[in-house]
Design a protein around this nucleic acid. Sequence first.
RNA 1: UGACCCAUGGUGUAAUGGUAGCACUACAGAUUUUGAUUCUGUCUGUUAAGGUUCGAAUCCUUAUGGGUCAACCA
Length: 562
Amino acid sequence: MIVDNSPNQKSLNFLEEIIQSDLSAGKYKSILTRFPPEPNGYLHIGHAKSICLNFGLGLHFGGKTNLRFDDTNPVTEDTEYVESIKEDIRWLGFQWANEFYASDYFEQIFQFAIKLIENGLAYVDDSTSEEIAMQKGTPTQSGSRNKYSERTVEENLKLFNDMRAGKFKDGEKVLRAKIDMSSSNMLMRDPILYRIKHAHHHRTGNDWCIYPMYDFAHGQSDSLENITHSICTLEFIQHRELYDWCINKLAIFPSQQFEFARLNISYTVMSKRKLLELVNENYVNGWDDPRMPTISGLRRRGYTPVSIRDFCEKIGVAKRENLIDVGLLEFCVREHLNKIAERRMVVFDPIKVVITNYEVATQNEESLFLTTENNPEDPHAGSRKISFGKEIFIERNDFMENPPKKYFRLAPGQMVRLKSAFIIKCDEVIKNEHGEITELRCTYFPESKSGSDVSGLQVKGTIHWVNANENIAIEVREYDRLFKVENPAKEEGDFKTYINIDSLKTVKGFAEKSLNEVSSNERFQFLRKGFYCLDKDSSKDKLIFNRTVTLKDGWAKDAKKN
RNA sequence: UGACCCAUGGUGUAAUGGUAGCACUACAGAUUUUGAUUCUGUCUGUUAAGGUUCGAAUCCUUAUGGGUCAACCA
């Protein structure tokens, strides 16, 4: 068989195959998907997978995608979350065809319940939740019905209306479907359809005091919107039987549910509950802490929508459990940022270098500035001026007094190129009384100027630098993985015991002056260091940058091995 | 010890009865005024045992391993 890997013949994932065959079989003229978040928390990268999937499928097959908030539990939901979710989806680059809420359908869903009651398929149960749990049986033992299940249609109708009318307290009664107490699927053992909650709902206010359960709202909402393919995660597989049962008994548009494996990423957690815990217990500074796997955290960290979409594309979609190496996410953001980020020079841990033969007095204003390209990957990015001088800073680890073989940077008697400037040679090492290096005396080669090098000198290494007297001090926040173990959720005990307490380091940096005029959505590569962006905590007097991701460092890796 | 879902290199994901491919990672080399990028190459895989077939990652059986289900959460 010939394998064709050209983009237009790319193999389809299992969902695309289903849709493809549904479409070619004429089952639907066009498809409609939906992204159904519950507004009770912020979206994370796992949701991004679902968003890319649902919206991507819509786009790919010329269909549409709705945004529907699954807001059937008023006690945990809030408009703050609604707004953040909408912002995140837009930021990722997707547009929904319609903005809907499950709460829009409360009246309709209530009528569905009435219909089930009338058909003898639902009853009002006065049992406590403990009693219901007891009667439910176990996976190996079937459950049993109680006396309430024998209520007449009239009685059930009256009671259910009384529930709606607010005649009962929370927990006093529930509406249950009458299905099969001995089903091997626990969800089919007379599942609860409605419960009483005298709570304020973020949209319907105090109109309702009974709210439908997920299983009695989701499928109906899909159906009412004519969703063709309702895509959810694996843990809902067992729910599909109930999903189909409701649609079938109600004889409404047959939306169909399909399940895929949720995203897991190494060294982090991906459950709203756990993320909420990290936020509430101040292990991180809010939902948008750059260490969080939330969309807002990644955004603040400097990730781009392109890189996240690309990541979601690369991880694929299937039905098996998976744990994606966080390195893949980092690869995706490096790949994008490398193309778009302008380069700047910042020295983090400086040593002063005095260029002994550089005569400032004889230089004119012009020659104090050198030109350097903004982005070698993008010719259109142009160039900028950088200030040179007799005293400069270089990175402390770009000098070694006793260098190993193949050390290409500065060392006594050795030469190195200063990026976009000159080749220098180290003549002398100055130390203080503790033996610490305080200064390097170097000579430079005027003919070796970048772009017009006629010195004939050959050097292996090029290092970054800043003018020691012309720079700005910045703060940089360096992030590491939030957890010390690959899969915190799988470890023994409380996942929080595996938190990496060193996941945030704040360091100082000396930056070239051009960094003074930056906007918050610009991304930069600090040469030979990594990718950075301005943090929202910045002020005019104090620039704070987030490190999005480091550059790959082959030298550091080799050094580690030896 | 019931039901359901799943099993392809280190990690993901293709191959839909006919050459096990792609990406990331790792390793080696070339290029490089970022030890980055880019480029080239290499290593590593069908959970096991039976069966069907000219031919099985693919179909069947069993085993093994992993996951899910007993919330008035979604």
